[in-house]
Write a protein that binds this DNA or RNA. Structure first.
Length: 488
RNA sequence: GUCUCCAUCGUCUAGCCCGGCCUAGGACAUCGGCCUUUCACGCCGACGACAGGGGUUCGAAUCCCCUUGGAGACGCCA
């Protein structure tokens, strides 16, 4: 037995994609485990067969891996406490339900979903919605119950909750939370289909898997008293339970797919870096206690402290995420970025295959500081692979003047004489031409930029010219000169 | 409706647990300016908050109560 070991889990339901709220929950568990030298395990809670989605599992795994949140026990990894998929643990839940049955702590309930539905409606009419199940089956005699079970009448197993008093527990983040028992009805533990409910399964699993701390979303606060009751019924010591605040969308409501991205993979597709998303998420409801914001996983992990987790819900501010992503982008490995960017270029029909990896990495380096998202590379920089087909009209009107044409022609004329094609030589060349023609560089450079790229903004001009190479620059400047000849 | 949780700049937050150092600090965004022969980065500055009301105290953003506002829960969903 590993007594005082920290063991935490992330236990998603495979009902859809992994949204950022879930990712944050996983992240905090992961950080806590890493920080304390504990174990972070993944458990799949698939006890609802009606909502199960096959693809979901893949998506959840992929999302976690992309973010670098690695589980050391769980599906794909194994471990001493498996299986880690609840639908493969049915016998275990049956066994523990039986224990409660033998102790008289549960009872079979034969109420149909229809009757329960009707009961709820009536209660609503009388404005007493709280209270839940009316406990009609609680006092059915053992004999009668057995008889009805034997004839095959469907039933669920309910926990006998106390009829008066209150239930309290110490939330790891909020402190004591006390709930009057009127809010806790007789919880269903086993469904008609033989599957356990979340409440039974998670309590049994957390105990069997020796989970020491449960960090979960705060939508579980109201259910925790049920779980406490269950731990008591089994005679088990509950783990430390802490509820993480929700993440809200900018309009104050729940984060949803409709209002932009909500799933981790959406953010990947939108051009965000995993390190940036992780960093950003870590700062939602937590902070290191000083002014640091840009932090590596290791720094975050070092500084991580459960006591600094806030109870206040926070709004997911995508603008700040973008800023943060830009910060990461600037220092990101160009080769790594290129792997994501190259397909985007290719998709736009750019002949990227004709260029060397070194060339392409340099293009990426040139753009890194001015892009906030990976996707922006795909939208810009086409001119590194293809001559501009047209010039930005507004810029052309401003830069492509008759006055600048001689300078462009001079550049075309003199490029061949540049022995060492680098930015220093080019600067010198341009200066010489400017002096010779009595023009300011401020007049010539923007025109060259437009000639070479077709647009008004972009990386440093001389860095670009150096990378583009002599032939390309000569060709494009000549083309611009011809354009002026024709259009001005 | 009932119960529970939450409440500092538009947003993320520091400070709150252990009242005075808070004329409330930082970051994003916004607006100015500087830098730059482009754009971006960077730098400087401005704007901007203790939800309201009562207490307790010599003193409250910090402790207590009420109000208001927000969120969540009230399933054979998790």
């Amino acid at each position: 037995m590993s007594e005082n070991r920290i063991r935490v889990r992330f236990a998603p339901s495979p009902t859809g994609y992994l949204h950022v709220g879930g990712a944050r929950t996983a992240l905090f568990n992961y950080l806590f485990a890493k920080k304390t030298g504990g174990t972070f395990l993944l458990r799949i809670e698939d006890t609802d067969r009606t909502r199960f989605q096959e693809d979901s599992l893949k998506e959840i795994f992929e999302s976690l891996k992309w973010m670098g949140i690695e589980w050391t026990e769980g599906p794909e990894k194994g471990g001493d406490f498996g299986p880690y998929i609840q639908s493969e643990r049915l016998d275990i839940y049956k066994k523990y339900a039986q224990i409660l049955w033998d102790r008289g702590q549960v009872y079979p309930c034969f109420c149909t979903p229809e009757r329960l539905e009707k009961m709820r409606k009536e209660k609503e009419l009388r404005k007493e919605i709280h209270g839940g199940y009316d406990r009609r089956c609680r006092d059915i005699s053992k004999e009668e119950a057995m008889k009805r079970i034997e004839v095959g009448e469907p039933y669920v197993l309910r926990l006998k909750a106390p009829l008066e008093g209150s239930i309290s527990f110490i939330d790891g983040i909020r402190g004591e939370i006390e709930t009057p028992v009127t809010m806790v009805d007789d919880t269903v533990l086993m469904k008609t289909d033989g599957y356990p409910t979340y409440h039974l399964a998670s309590v049994v699993d957390d105990h069997l898997m020796e989970i020491s701390h449960v960090l979960r979303g705060d939508e579980w606060i109201a259910s925790t008293p049920r779980h406490i009751l269950l731990y008591k019924a089994f005679g088990w010591q509950p783990p430390v339970i802490a509820h993480l605040p929700v993440i809200l969308s900018p309009d104050g409501g729940k984060l949803s797919k409709r209002k932009g991205a909500a799933s981790v993979m959406d953010y990947k597709r939108a051009g965000f870096l995993p390190e940036a998303l992780l960093n950003f998420l870590s700062l939602l409801g937590w902070n290191p206690g000083d002014d640091r914001e840009i932090m590596s996983v290791n720094e975050i992990m070092e500084a991580f402290d459960m006591h600094r987790i806030s109870a206040k819900p926070s709004v997911f501010d995508e603008q700040k995420l973008e800023w943060m992503n830009g910060q990461y982008m600037e220092h990101y490995d160009s080769a790594k970025l290129l792997a994501d960017i190259e397909p985007m270029w290719a998709e736009k029909g750019l002949p990227v295959a004709d260029f060397s990896a070194e060339y392409k990495e340099r293009v990426v380096s040139l753009f890194k500081t001015r892009c906030k998202k990976v996707t922006e590379f795909g939208e810009n920089g086409g001119y590194f692979f293809k001559d501009p087909e047209e010039y930005d009209a507004k810029q052309a009107g401003k830069q492509f003047t008759a006055a600048v044409k001689p300078a462009l022609d001079k550049i075309v004329e003199k490029t061949d004489s540049v022995a060492d094609w680098n930015r220093a030589a080019l600067e010198e060349l341009f200066h010489g031409i400017a002096d010779e023609l009595g023009m300011s560089a401020g007049k010539i450079n923007p025109a060259v930029r437009l000639a070479v790229t077709g647009v008004g903004g972009g990386p440093d001009l001389f860095d670009m010219l150096e990378l583009l190479g002599k032939d390309c620059v000569k060709r494009r400047v000549a083309a611009a000169s011809a354009w002026i000849e024709k259009n001005v």
